[in-house]
Simulated assay, not measured.
Amino acid sequence: MKLWEIAHSRTGDKGNISNVSLIAYDIKDYELLKEKVTPEVVKQWFKEIVKGEVVRYELPQLGAMNFVMYDALGGGVTRSLALDKHGKSLSSYLLDIDI
């Protein structure tokens, strides 16, 4: 199953750091998400983009996680040559992971 079947996501940025949330539609799916979507899985999924560390922050009361990805935006908005300088499409890309 794809993540988008049981969760949605939003993305933010600050400098060269991308912040991607993963929020379960049903809180009952949170434990599955926590088990399957580890920082290591996210780092591997974004290996062509994320050059730094991936840190996961858990919000179990909300059925959500937040992944902070360092060195992820090609130097940041003002330096990147990427078409999506803010990394807003990274949330859609995350949701394409098979679990």
Rank of each mutant, 00 (worst) to 15 (best):
K47Y: 09
K47P: 01
K47R: 13
E48D: 15
E48N: 15
E48M: 14
E48V: 04
E48K: 15
E48Y: 15
I49R: 14
I49L: 08
I49A: 03
I49E: 10
I49G: 07
I49S: 06
I49P: 07
V50Q: 00
V50K: 02
V50P: 02
V50L: 04
K51Q: 05
K51R: 03
K51C: 00
K51E: 02
K51A: 00
G52V: 01
G52S: 03
G52A: 02
G52R: 00
G52I: 03
G52D: 01
G52F: 03
E53K: 15
E53D: 12
E53L: 11
E53V: 09
V54G: 04
V54Y: 07
V54T: 11
V54A: 09
V54R: 04
V55E: 09
V55I: 15
V55H: 14
V55M: 09
V55S: 10
V55L: 13
V55R: 14
R56I: 05
R56S: 12
R56H: 08
R56M: 10
R56K: 15
R56V: 10
Y57Q: 12
Y57W: 05
Y57I: 08
Y57L: 14
E58D: 15
E58G: 08
E58V: 07
E58P: 05
E58C: 11
L59M: 14
L59C: 09
L59T: 08
L59N: 10
L59I: 12
L59R: 09
P60G: 09
P60E: 07
P60K: 08
P60I: 10
P60F: 11
P60W: 10
Q61M: 13
Q61E: 15
Q61H: 14
Q61I: 13
Q61L: 09
Q61T: 11
Q61V: 11
L62H: 06
L62M: 14
L62F: 13
L62V: 00
G63V: 06
G63W: 10
G63P: 08
G63M: 06
A64P: 12
A64S: 12
A64M: 09
M65G: 08
M65D: 04
M65V: 07
M65E: 04
M65S: 09
N66I: 11
N66Y: 12
N66E: 11
N66M: 06
F67A: 01
F67S: 00
F67T: 02
F67I: 01
F67Q: 01
V68W: 07
V68E: 04
V68T: 14
M69C: 14
M69H: 15
M69L: 15
M69P: 13
Y70A: 03
Y70K: 05
Y70F: 13
Y70R: 06
Y70V: 04
D71P: 10
D71V: 08
D71A: 08
D71S: 11
D71F: 05
D71W: 06
A72C: 03
A72R: 01
A72D: 01
A72W: 01
A72F: 00
L73V: 03
L73H: 03
L73C: 05
L73A: 04
L73G: 03
G74L: 00
G74E: 00
G74T: 00
G74A: 02
G74C: 02
G74K: 01
G75A: 01
G75P: 04
G75Q: 03
G75L: 04
G75M: 02
G75D: 06
G75R: 02
G75K: 05
G76W: 05
G76Q: 07
G76T: 06
G76L: 11
V77D: 00
V77S: 12
V77W: 11
V77H: 07
